[in-house]
Amino acid sequence: MTTHAPVPRPRETTARAASVFLSTHPRARLALLLTAPLFWLGLVYIVALVLLLVTAFWSVDSFTGQISQTWTLDNIITVLTGSLYQTVTLRTLGVALLVTIIDVALALPIAFYMAKVATPRMQRILVIAVLTPLWASYLVKAYAWRSVLSQDGILEWLVAPFGGSTPGYGLPATIITLSYLWLPYVILPIYAGLERVPDSLLEASGDLGARTWPTLRHVVLPLALPAIIAGTIFSFSLSLGDYITVNIVGGANQMLGNLVYTNVGAANNLPLASAIALIPIVIIFGYLFLVRRTGALDNL
């Protein structure tokens, strides 16, 4: 055993006193930790969000463009009953769901390979390979897909010899592009989640006679599920609110984001925009409520 120098007696300063107070009063410690972040999130975000929702119950004077603060349910009724909003909501939901499914299907094998098969060196290279596309700006990538999917584009050029053809601009193009844009955000949490699954567990399953597929289905999948759901939150919510990609490759289609955007930007009708914004808010809250129990929210 080596000898340790005696720990010097702490000086009696106010800082020391504060430290003693904090270590004996966990509640004070908690308060100190929480004050700043809660102040920030509460003041900046929650207040802003609530005020936006309140605006949904106001209306706009169409001549001067000013908001008049008289309570009305008109906007909510318009959104609930207008066939335009129903069609667009369904279209948006469909796109968001498909994007999410595609992304999970693509992310699972990659994440599994990265976490369980690749050598540490390879792992590092793969993480870089997955993260790098994030840095080529969103708009640049969307325009690149516009070029790829064009009638004259690479895709047509690649598949034409096999009798295929590019889907052109429209909803399929939107789904492809959005899946592309959000893929890294889905791979990363799934990779992190799979990495946390101990290898010993998989070996135990193998020792007990389970073959690869059953092991994957009954051992890996349940353990990785929270991480997968965490990934879906990204792709689902990012797709739900997107309006730029659909503008670039979506042909003549519009999504919920476009309706919100045009009502804020073009129509200068913030109350109606807020009412439309309620649709994705309700959907997301519903989704978060559903997945809350799985522990997915800790895996984002």
Partner: peptide, 11 residues
């Protein structure tokens, strides 16, 4: 992060 950016933006 879960709510669409356009909602955070206009809020």
């Amino acid at each position: 992060i879960a709510l669409p950016g356009i909602i955070t933006g206009i809020a």
